[in-house]
Structure formats: structure tokens, C-alpha cells
Design a protein around this nucleic acid. Structure first.
Length: 725
DNA sequence: TCCCATCCTG
DNA sequence: CAGGATGGGA
């Protein structure tokens, strides 16, 4: 049974690896999403500050920067549409946030289409996705009331400016019209606009595994630039929007005092929705709500109009900025995390990336929603059938950093398509918003953008095998706590770590340096002070933050520096294991269990960690044999002439492998063992014993007896955190 | 039969 | 570093 289980598990892992699937526990996706929301929240707050500053700045400055706004009547109508659609997008977004997640997307959008069908489209584009909001605006435009005409003129002027802003933004990146899959340049000149494309979600399309993945390392630096570039663009857009807004509101500054009050508060989407719905008689039906707004405008209340405009501007920025920044930060951080050591900032993919941006802007509904779409593609887009596999569900997070496959998307994405799930991005992470975006999601506790330590592949937590672990991954706290606390370590840099001084590697290291080789006084294992090893039979929940070594062992144990039990072996564990190899080449499984108290060992991860040491030995012996043979060929006379020192190339090679960041002072004992091993190999090779079948076994036997006791601090699950590096 | 180590391979 | 094959020991 176990054999079968192991075999099948291996098969599964193999399969997953072959598929390029993430190795981590799928539930970590939830946590990743939570982290995104955390960032989102931060962005919202940050942006609210930005918005306040911008608005105040514009209000205080009579000079309006509208240089890019060259009004024409034809543009006016387009811009007006865009303003209207932006408004409707925002409304959709709000409704999505407010509405239950149980809404079927298809039904949701079909309802929208039904609403649209009742409204004549101003543009005459039958494929357009009219909305109640546009209907409202169009009805308003069609009115013969003088007041409404004034209103319309005012709005047209606004739209014209928005149009110009958008146009200028589109041309900001280098023109990539030839690569533009959306036909953006053409669409810019056509008075048609694309329809909303309600896309059935494809949660987990394997197609996103791009066949030609550009180097993430190379993209890292570019993404940084992209981030700042996009932010600059957004700032420009903000400024222009607000300038426009300010011009329109010149005579109504006092009337908008409450708006400014609003701006002095952190912008909160939920409260904004509430405010907006309070303005309408009915908070449930947006058409009704819009009509009420329209009636107020028809009453000639410029205050209301300006408030609405203000609201549009604010909401647009609220909606636009956070996802953009979120996505940018997400992408950059992802690249950074995955290629933190990358130093080669290549520009090879700059064109590619910029085209991504451009095509992304094409999907930005604010930018491209009004863009013309040829009738045929539009008709195709109207199909309620599921999109092609390469079409990824449009979401806030993906509009700005599309995957290469995403670039094949040919329709403008709605700003507010319900972002219920984030499908795999090019970072191969999955984000699932089980209930869409709710205002309550955003204040979620910020999680680390990425786990500091990702599980190693063998350590795939298999929920079916470990139901308790599976349950543990259901909450944010239940990810590998080491990851959690590693991140917390940066949040609380001053937090005390281990009070027991002899658990400190620094102490060990200093002791070690002062008296090399004298490790007996810190001999590990048997010291009763470190009897914090988890009892074998303990079968508690994987996460017991406080069910941990007694306070006598770790007097300063706290959730901040603490850890909890996990079945997942992380790269941190691997690093620790490598350092342990300096002391023990043949650790027993019992020894490993003792020194990884944060690991709940099962058959799986036990064999994994044993395999690690097997691999360590393999590398070690290969190096030894290599250098022994080299010494033989170098006509070294006797084995006694060989000695591994910290200057020797062999040492550097080993140190690079086991102690890459040089965070650990290699113990003197390891030099002795290395010297012994090298000499054993040298002698065997010199005496041509390497012709014998298993000539290495005798060497292995010798070396296996040279294991040293591990320093006590290896029993500290956080010992690597204490290393200076 | 299970566990572990090694070797080979990717 | 991991997976698979293989072999040996308990």
C-alpha cells in the first residue's frame, strides 16, 4: 500500500512538475489573494492621499494644464461616451462589489444586455454594450431642455478632454501598432466602441503556461520601470482629469465642500458605494438610480452635476489606480522574489514588454472602451459562448501586465468585469476571490506577497494525505509559519529572538572561532536543555503556535519569532540541512527529526530530507574524487601532502554548495573530514583500487564515522534567522 | 516487505 | 535537487 502510495504520489508530483504546475499547496492561493487584498488596501489608502493632494493642488491653482485638450465637437461626443461608460463601468464595479458573489456571471451579464437592449445607442453601434448609465446620458443628450443642453455642452467639453487625455496616453508608449492585436490605432479613429465582453471565467487554463517564457530575471528590472512608467501615466491622467474637473467647477467650489470633506477621508469603496446609493432613491437598481440622478440634473442643479462629475472622477481614479498599482507591485514583487539575485538587467524584452503595456491599455476600458471595433470582431465578442482558451478572464490584476497569451485577447476589457477569480498570471500563481470583490476583502491582513520560502517540490502538501494539514491551509495563518515569521521578522526587526544564549548561532560561531574544534561543550542532542523535540507519536494539528517547545527551552518564544509544525520542507529547511551537513554526513532520521522540530515528519518528507543528505553526499564525494584524481595526476606523493584548508579550491567548491551565502562559518571539523575524505580517495585512486566494483563503499564507511554532534542551535527551528547574513 | 543508500538521469 | 531503478540489510 505504502509503496503504491509513494509511487502514485511520485507520479503525481512528476506529472505536476511536467505540467509546470505549482508545487505548493493549492490553498496557498487563497493566502496569496489575501495578500493582494492587503496590498490593495494599502494602495487605496495611498491613492486617497494622492487624490487629495491632487485635488487640493488643482483647486488651489487657477492655472489649468489642459494643453493636450484640443476640443473638437466630434471628439466631444466620443469623450462623452467615454465619460459615460466610465461611469457605468464604475457602477458595475460597485454593484459587483456590493452584490453577492453567487451571481452567475453569465446571468449577470445577460441581464445587463437586456437592459442595454432597451436603450438606443447614441453611436449607432449595435454591438455596443449600452448600459443604463449611458442610456441615462443619452437620454439626457436627447433632451430639448435648455438646461439640459447646457449640461450636455458642459459634459461634451469634459468628454473631449477625457478623449484627448486618453489619446495622449495611448501614444505615450512607443507605437507598436504593427503588433497591436487589438487594432487599437484603427479603433481610435472609429466612432464605434467595443462591447463589454462578459467572459466566462477560465479559472485554470493550462494555456497560460507560455511556451516561450521570457526570462523572469530579465523582466524584473523592466517591470520596475514599467511600474514607475505606469504610475507616471496615471498621475498624468489624474492630473488631467482633475484639471478638467476643476475647470468645470470653477464656480462651484463652495458647493463641493462636502466632496472635499470626503476627500479628506480615506477613500473607501464601500462607503463610496453607500454614499452613492444614498443619492439614489433605490439602491438596488442602477437604472433607477441613474434616472434619479438625471432628474436632478434636469432640474438644473449644477451642484448635483458637479457632484456627479466629482464622483465620476473620484470613482474612476479609485477604481483605476489601486488595481493598476496592485498589479504592478504584484508583478514586480513576484519577479523580485523569484529572481532576487538577478543582476543582469537586460533590455532584450523591452519591446515585448512595452507592447504588453500597449495592448494592455487597449484592454483598459477607460482607454479603449469606446474604441471602435470592427463589426465582425464585435459580433464575435458578443457571443455569449465561452471565449477561446487563450482568453483569460479580464480582471483588474491582469489588464496591465498581460501574459503573452493574454495579448491575444482582442477585445477591450471592462473595467468592472466581476473579478471573481484571478486566473493564473504569468507568475503562475492563482488568485481566487471566492466571492468577488467585497469591500470587506480589502482590509484583510496583509500577507507576504510571496512566501519567503516556497515548498520544495517533494514536499507538496497533499491534502488528501493530510487532511489536517489541508485544513490548516485554509486560513492565512496556516501557511508555512516559517514563511510567515520570516516575513514578520522584517516587520519586527527588534523583536527578541532566542533568549537562550547557547541557542544563538552567534554565540556558537564566536565560541567556535575562539576555540575551533572544541564542540564538546555544546554537544547537541543529549543535552536535556534541548529536550524540546516533538514527541514522536504526537499527532496534533500542524499548526499549534503555542503548542511548541516549553518555555524553559525557548524562554522568549513568541508568535513573532516562533514557528509551528509543518509537513512541508521549505528551502529554508534545505539551507539548514546543508549547514548541518558540515557536521553530519550521515544523519539518522531520528537526528533529523530532532533538529527540525518545526517539521511534522511523515514518510514522505522524511525520505525527502534523507534524500537531501544523499544528494549532499553525492556532491561531496564527487568533489572529493575529482580533486583526489587531480592530485593523483598532479603527482602528489602521499596522502599526507593533501590537506583541505579554507583556501583550497575544494573547500570553496564545497562551501559554495552548502553555504552559498557564506552565512555560516564552516566548522574546522568539516575541514578535517574533508581532508580525510580527500586522502581516502587519493589513496584508493593511487593504489588503483578504483577499479574495484564498489571501492567507494569503504571510503563511505570511514567517512560515516566522522560525523560530529550538531551544535545545539540547529535545534532551533529558526536558527537560520539568527545567522548574520 | 520496508527502509535506506547509491547510481543514473533530467 | 528530484525521480526512478537497483541492491542490500533488517
Amino acid at each position: 500500500m505504502s509503496k503504491v502510495e509513494d509511487a502514485s504520489s511520485r507520479q503525481v508530483k512528476r506529472h505536476r512538475a511536467d505540467q509546470g504546475l505549482p508545487r505548493g499547496n493549492p490553498h496557498t492561493k487563497v493566502n496569496s489573494f489575501a495578500s493582494i487584498n492587503g496590498v490593495f488596501q494599502e494602495n487605496v489608502e495611498h491613492n486617497s492621499e494622492v487624490l487629495r493632494n491632487l485635488l487640493n493642488l488643482n483647486r488651489s491653482s487657477p492655472a489649468k494644464s489642459v494643453g493636450l485638450c484640443s476640443d473638437t465637437e466630434s471628439q466631444d461626443s466620443f469623450a462623452q461616451d467615454r465619460v459615460a461608460e466610465d461611469r457605468s463601468s464604475l457602477l458595475y464595479s460597485e454593484e459587483d462589489i456590493a452584490e453577492s458573489a453567487d451571481i452567475e456571471p453569465s446571468g449577470y451579464w445577460q441581464d445587463r444586455k437586456l437592459e442595454c437592449a432597451k436603450v438606443p445607442s447614441e453611436s449607432g453601434d449595435s454591438t455596443a454594450m449600452p448600459t443604463a448609465e449611458t442610456a441615462m446620458w443619452e437620454e439626457c443628450n436627447g433632451s430639448t431642455s435648455p438646461i439640459q443642453e447646457t449640461i450636455t455642452d458642459s459634459l461634451k467639453a469634459k468628454r473631449a478632454r477625457v478623449e484627448n487625455i486618453i489619446t495622449s496616453m495611448r501614444h505615450s508608449p512607443p507605437a507598436v501598432g504593427a503588433q497591436d492585436p487589438v487594432g487599437l490605432e484603427d479603433s481610435l479613429r472609429k466612432p464605434k466602441r467595443k462591447q463589454y465582453q462578459p467572459q466566462p471565467q477560465r479559472w485554470d487554463s493550462g494555456d497560460e503556461d507560455s511556451p516561450s517564457k521570457p526570462s523572469r530575471k530579465q523582466e524584473k528590472t523592466k517591470l520596475k520601470g514599467i511600474l514607475s512608467h505606469l504610475q507616471t501615466q496615471l498621475d498624468t491622467l489624474q492630473e488631467k482629469y482633475l484639471n478638467m474637473y476643476d475647470i468645470e467647477d470653477d464656480g462651484n467650489l463652495s458647493d463641493n465642500s462636502d466632496d472635499m470633506d470626503d476627500l479628506n477621508e480615506p477613500i473607501d469603496t464601500g462607503s463610496a458605494i453607500q454614499k452613492y446609493e444614498v443619492n439614489g432613491v433605490s439602491g438596488n437598481s442602477s437604472p433607477v438610480r441613474h434616472r434619479n440622478d438625471r432628474k436632478r440634473r434636469a432640474d438644473g442643479s449644477s451642484v448635483l452635476i458637479d457632484r456627479t462629475t466629482s464622483y465620476i472622477v473620484r470613482q474612476t481614479l479609485k477604481e483605476e489606480l489601486p488595481p493598476l498599482l496592485l498589479n504592478a507591485v504584484d508583478s514586480v514583487m513576484n519577479k523580485l522574489t523569484k529572481s532576487g539575485s538577478s543582476k543582469n538587467a537586460s533590455n532584450n524584452n523591452s519591446t515585448h514588454t512595452k507592447s504588453e503595456i500597449n495592448s494592455n491599455q487597449a484592454r483598459n476600458p477607460v482607454l479603449a472602451q469606446n474604441a471602435a471595433s470592427p463589426p465582425a470582431p464585435a459580433a464575435q465578442e458578443c457571443k455569449p459562448t465561452p471565449p477561446p482558451p487563450t482568453l483569460i478572464h479580464p480582471s483588474f490584476f491582469m489588464r496591465h501586465f498581460p501574459t503573452p497569451l493574454e495579448q491575444q485577447q482582442t477585445e477591450a476589457m471592462s473595467l468592472v468585469v466581476p473579478s471573481r477569480k484571478r486566473v493564473r498570471s504569468n507568475d503562475h500563481r492563482h488568485f481566487h476571490a471566492s466571492g468577488g470583490f467585497h469591500p470587506g476583502d480589502f482590509p484583510m491582513k496583509p500577507e507576504p506577497l510571496l512566501p519567503v520560502s516556497l515548498p520544495t517540490s517533494v514536499a507538496i502538501p497533499n491534502p488528501s494525505l493530510h487532511p489536517t494539514l489541508a485544513a490548516s491551509f485554509m486560513t492565512p495563518n496556516m501557511t508555512d509559519p516559517r514563511d510567515h515569521f520570516e516575513s514578520l521578522r522584517y516587520m519586527y526587526p527588534g523583536s527578541p529572538l532566542i533568549a537562550n544564549s547557547h541557542l544563538s548561532p552567534l554565540n556558537y560561531l564566536s565560541d567556535h572561532r575562539s576555540s575551533p574544534g572544541d564542540l564538546s561543550h555544546i554537544s547537541s542532542g543529549e543535552s536535556p536543555a534541548y529536550s524540546m523535540v516533538k514527541p514522536e507519536g504526537r499527532d496534533t494539528s500542524p499548526l499549534h503556535m503555542h503548542d511548541r517547545p516549553s518555555s524553559a527551552d525557548l524562554s522568549d518564544y513568541s508568535p513573532v519569532n516562533g514557528t509551528s509544525i509543518t509537513c512541508t520542507l521549505t528551502p529554508t529547511h534545505l539551507r539548514k540541512a546543508k549547514l548541518m551537513f558540515f557536521f553530519t554526513r550521515y544523519p539518522s532520521s531520528a537526528l533529523l527529526r530532532q533538529h527540525f522540530p518545526d517539521v511534522k515528519f511523515n514518510r514522505h518528507n522524511t525520505s525527502q530530507i534523507i534524500k537531501w543528505f544523499s544528494n549532499f553526499r553525492e556532491f561531496y564525494y564527487i568533489q572529493m574524487e575529482k580533486f583526489a584524481r587531480q592530485s593523483v595526476s598532479d603527482n602528489v606523493e602521499t596522502a599526507e601532502d593533501l590537506k583541505v584548508t579554507r583556501d583550497s579550491e575544494l573547500y570553496r567548491s564545497l562551501n559554495l554548495h552548502y553555504n552559498k551565502s557564506n552565512e555560516f562559518t564552516v566548522p574546522e571539523g568539516f575541514l578535517h573530514v574533508s581532508t580525510t575524505t580527500l586522502r581516502e580517495f587519493f589513496t584508493a585512486i593511487k593504489s588503483v583500487k578504483d577499479n574495484e566494483p564498489s571501492w567507494k563503499k569503504t571510503i563511505y564507511k570511514v567517512i560515516s564515522k566522522l560525523d560530529e554532534p550538531l551544535p545545539p542551535f540547529f535545534k532551533n527551528p529558526n536558527c537560520l534567522d539568527l545567522l548574520p547574513f
